[in-house]
């Protein structure tokens, strides 16, 4: 099998009712990345997910997953999907164990009877996300972050190499969000591709390496610091975003130019003067600082 990748080339998706949800979209993701799929509602994010899972067929263009067609990829169970919390019926009478076992269904025989191997994998997946103690809970009894982890465990049990997450951080507090991000990073480091659809811009710089910006097509795709610029975001979101400008403190000058931004759960996205992306702190970004300094020096 060739190394893991997603190649979307000139894909156009039109629904039977004539609505064109995506036109001429192209991007490439190689193995070991966390990529954010960013765009407003109706920009084609979910259409893109559906095409990657093979639920809608592009009317033009090709999608290749690790060198396979989408159909072949589905047979290999390469693509796993973690649904939005709102899509799941949390009163359904299934336990955490049952849900994670569902990830194994594609690998089982006609009668779907779990083998010792299936059970071992389910146990491992549960341990991986730290949910072993909750295996007999009914899914509705979990907190928002635990729910998310269960469905991630299902994706692991499925052995999905490409994991699609739909709005994973809605209804999740900041601490759990960080735990999930740590988990996603470790999955990335194993070489998986993680594609996260989100409209929460502020969280993107904190855990994503790549960004795919969509608005009825792919506007830009590539490494975070290249794509996530003010210009690109303006193109993707138009006038939808609210902006605050802090050239300096609005009421005092004696403490230098430091301005602190506090928000509730939606993380803010901060740009520097030239429209470049600002991070939460400098730590871990030393190489970037050096690079910029060099550019400025030239």
């Amino acid at each position: 099998m060739p190394s893991l990748s997603i190649d979307v080339a000139n894909v156009t998706v039109a629904y039977p009712n004539g609505h064109t949800a995506l036109r001429d979209a192209s991007f490439h993701l190689h193995q070991g990345v966390i990529a954010a799929l960013v765009g407003i509602n109706g920009s084609g994010k979910s259409t893109l997910f559906k095409s990657l899972m093979g639920f809608v067929k592009p009317v033009a263009g090709t999608i290749s997953i690790a060198g396979n067609t989408v159909e072949q990829a589905r047979k290999l169970k390469l693509v796993a999907y973690v649904p939005q919390s709102e899509e799941v019926d949390w009163t359904f009478p299934v336990s955490v164990w049952d849900v994670v076992m569902m990830g194994r269904y594609g690998h089982m025989n006609f009668l779907r009877i779990a083998s010792a191997e299936d059970k071992r994998i389910v146990n491992e997946s549960l341990a991986r996300v730290g949910m072993t103690d909750f295996r007999d809970r009914q899914i509705g009894e979990l907190s928002g972050g635990q729910k998310k982890r269960v469905f991630l465990a299902r994706a692991l049990a499925q052995n999905g190499q490409i994991i699609l997450l739909d709005e994973p951080f809605t209804g999740v507090d900041v601490t759990t969000e960080e735990a999930i991000i740590a988990l996603l990073r470790s999955l990335r480091d194993e070489g998986r591709i993680i594609l996260v659809s989100t409209h929460n811009l502020g969280s993107v710089p904190e855990f994503c390496d790549h960004v795919v910006l969509v608005n009825r097509t792919v506007l830009a795709a590539g490494p975070l610091e290249e794509v996530f610029t003010e210009d690109n975001l303006n193109r993707a979101f138009g006038g939808v975003l609210r902006q605050f400008h802090f050239e300096q403190s609005t009421i005092q000058d004696h403490d230098g130019k430091t301005v602190k931004l506090v928000t509730d759960d939606e993380r803010p996205l901060v740009f520097g003067k030239g429209g470049h992306l600002e991070y939460k702190d400098r730590q871990g970004r030393e190489d970037l600082v050096e690079k910029r300094q060099k550019e400025a020096g030239e």
Binding site: R74, Y81, E87, V88, D89, V99, M102, G106, Q158
Partner: peptide
């Protein structure tokens, strides 16, 4: 329970 997952499993 989860039609989308069922489909994505083939």
């Amino acid at each position: 329970f989860d039609e989308v997952h069922a489909r994505s499993l083939g």
